[in-house]
Amino acid sequence: MTASYDKTISQAQSNETQELVDRFNALDTDAKLAWFYFVYKKMGDSITPAAPAAAEPELAPLLLGDYFKLSKEQQLEIMRDIVNRKDTEYSRAYGAIKENNQLLVWYAWAVAMGDTVVGIPASYQPSQAVNDLLSEIEGLDFEEQMSVFRTIAGEVGYTDVKPIATQAETGKTSSL
């Protein structure tokens, strides 16, 4: 769960986009990581203009600084921990930032893959499920794509911050 919204309320805007998020969630860990990589390889030019204008990279020094100095094995483990929502230092750092910053993290990692970030093995072939998911997302309009990306990025990582209970849930009015 991220600090920016209640994860129980999806940001996916339609049944179609929610179904794509659900299909992403059904992928195994490494397929999810491959999906992030291929999304940025295929659609990075359309995703990145939306994120940097609204992103604040200085809020993620651990993820956009220290991370690049780690070994490839450590980097891969951190990525796996984030998509598996494990309670680790890096997963908490990721879970504490808003979706636009989370998208910026994945973008920065994708750009650096094979250089300062662990890359996908040259022999890797994405599964049919990954390819199908990418194709269907490519067919969406930009706004729908971004709702899928924000939802997926926002659902991974770890935080123990809980949404604030509403008046309807508590029966109490807020005091000022």
Rank of each mutant, 00 (worst) to 15 (best):
D6K: 11
I47F: 07
A34K: 03
A3Y: 08
L27E: 02
V21P: 12
K42W: 07
I47T: 11
Q18E: 08
A3C: 04
D30W: 06
Q13R: 15
D28E: 07
K7T: 13
T17Y: 03
Q13F: 07
I47Y: 08
D45Y: 12
F38I: 11
S46L: 06
D28G: 09
N25Y: 05
A34R: 01
V21M: 05
E16C: 01
T17W: 05
T29E: 03
F36I: 00
D45M: 09
V39K: 00
I9Q: 14
S10L: 10
D28R: 09
G44V: 08
S46A: 09
I9F: 12
Y40D: 12
F24K: 00
K42C: 01
D6A: 14
I9Y: 11
F24L: 13
K32R: 15
I47Q: 11
V21A: 13
T8V: 10
A31H: 03
K42H: 06
A34Y: 10
F24N: 11
D28W: 02
D45W: 08
Q13C: 09
Y40W: 07
S14E: 02
Y37R: 04
S14T: 15
D22M: 12
Y40A: 05
A31L: 03
E19T: 00
Q11P: 08
K41C: 03
A3G: 05
Y40H: 14
T2I: 07
D30I: 00
A31D: 15
N25W: 10
F36L: 07
Q18Y: 03
V21L: 06
T48Y: 08
A34D: 14
D30P: 01
F24P: 09
Y37L: 09
T48R: 11
V21E: 13
A3R: 04
G44Y: 03
E16G: 00
T17R: 00
A3W: 04
D28F: 04
K7R: 14
D30E: 14
N15L: 13
A26E: 14
I9N: 04
S10W: 07
T17S: 12
M1F: 06
Q18C: 04
D28Y: 05
V21I: 12
G44I: 10
E19L: 14
Q11S: 08
K41R: 02
L33D: 12
I47H: 07
A26S: 13
N15Q: 15
T48C: 02
Q11H: 07
A12C: 05
L27T: 02
F38M: 07
Q18P: 01
W35V: 10
R23P: 13
I47D: 03
F36E: 00
S10G: 05
F38E: 10
D28A: 08
A34E: 09
L27V: 10
K32P: 00
E16F: 10
D45H: 12
N25C: 03
V39L: 13
W35F: 15
S4I: 08
T2H: 02
E16V: 09
D6W: 04
Y40P: 06
K41N: 06
L27S: 03
M43D: 04
Y5K: 06
T2C: 05
M1I: 09
L33V: 15
V39F: 02
R23C: 09
S10I: 09
F24M: 07
K41L: 09
L27I: 06
D45S: 15
